[in-house]
């Protein structure tokens, strides 16, 4: 049974086809409005994530399907001690596809190994969140018209940001990607990702602590939040936090077609003054997330022979 646990479970060709399908769904929503009629998506959210859950549910409803599930582990059998495998086997009797979020890393893989229906990883702790990466890729593809030959800057917390790690992994499969890593030293990209992902795939990569110094080079700027709790002392946090807040002033040397992204939720790392700038794409990213989840649900149900 085909599932999506890690973005690299899909080949580059499959990801590209998925992005094309999502674009077709955007252009012709009526073609897909009943494609999942009679099918059920189970959203198994063992930790709260309102936006991701609603995105999956909206996606299934727009495909003509219906939704069952829970939004908190307290409302599930796991509170009685049921294993992830057993939950997956039980839900396989009720639904046609599962979207699972779990605080434990690897739980969706355990579910996929046990279930008889496709499982989509909707986030497992700090590990993977492949549908966010698909949303990011669809956004770049729609905004830039391509998924190759561009310079992308990742800014903020590159150490703990799983969306950054996944997107970098996904981009290794495209030609001509230049990566600029912008972060305080304390939150730099982990060495094993630089070695195992960037260097191993021959990606061009530069590293800096100065966002403004590299702004003019960027085609895409992927912002993340610098979180206070990641620092060992408050002094360092106070020294660095404002360096990575994006303001209109910091954009003065940016390209006119820069694509500004953020996985959200935002706290203060992008000034609200930028929201009206046509280069701000982070709310489009949310919408693209729903579209690409629609394409993913259809792909997996088709492969399972359910539609």
């Amino acid at each position: 049974m085909r599932s999506l646990i890690d973005i690299l479970d899909f080949s580059a060709e499959e990801v590209n086809a998925l992005i094309d399908d999502a674009k077709d769904m955007i252009a012709h929503p009526e073609k897909y409005s009943e494609i999942c009629k009679g099918k059920k998506l189970a959203t198994l959210f063992f930790e709260p994530s309102t936006r991701t859950r609603l995105s999956f549910e909206a996606a299934m409803l727009e495909l003509g399907g219906s939704v069952i599930g829970f939004s908190d582990a307290q409302n599930s059998s796991s509170s009685k001690g049921e294993s992830v495998s057993d939950t997956a086997k039980v839900i396989s009797c009720y639904a046609d596809i599962i979207a699972m979020r779990h605080p434990r890393e690897g739980a969706p893989l355990v579910a996929a190994n046990a279930a008889s229906i496709p499982v989509i990883n909707a986030g497992d702790g700090g590990h993977n969140h492949p549908t966010q990466t698909l949303a990011d890729l669809l956004t770049i593809s729609r905004e830039k018209g391509r998924l190759n030959d561009f310079t992308i800057g990742f800014c903020g917390d590159l150490k703990f940001g799983r969306t950054v790690h996944s997107l970098i992994s996904a981009l290794t499969r495209y030609e001509g990607i230049r990566v600029v890593l912008i972060s305080p030293e304390e939150l730099a990209l982990p060495g094993y990702i630089k070695k195992d992902v960037i260097e191993k795939n021959g990606m061009i990569c530069t590293q800096t602590t100065d966002l403004e110094a590299v702004m003019s080079e960027l085609d895409v700027l992927y912002m993340t939040r610098v979180q206070k709790e990641r620092f060992f002392n408050e002094e360092d946090y106070l020294r660095l936090k404002d360096s990575y807040i994006l303001t209109p002033q910091k954009l003065k040397n940016a390209k006119s077609d820069l694509c500004i992204m953020h996985p959200l939720p935002r706290v203060n790392e992008i000034s609200v003054a930028i929201d009206d700038d046509p280069r701000a794409c982070y709310f489009k990213q949310v919408l693209n997330g729903k579209h690409v989840r629609k394409a993913l649900i259809v792909k997996l149900l088709k492969e399972a022979g359910a539609i």
């Binding site: 434990r104 890393e105 690897g106 355990v110 497992d124 702790g125």
Partner: peptide, 9 residues
Amino acid sequence: NPRCITSCE
């Protein structure tokens, strides 16, 4: 890894 699913199952 204490956050790994194998640590609780």
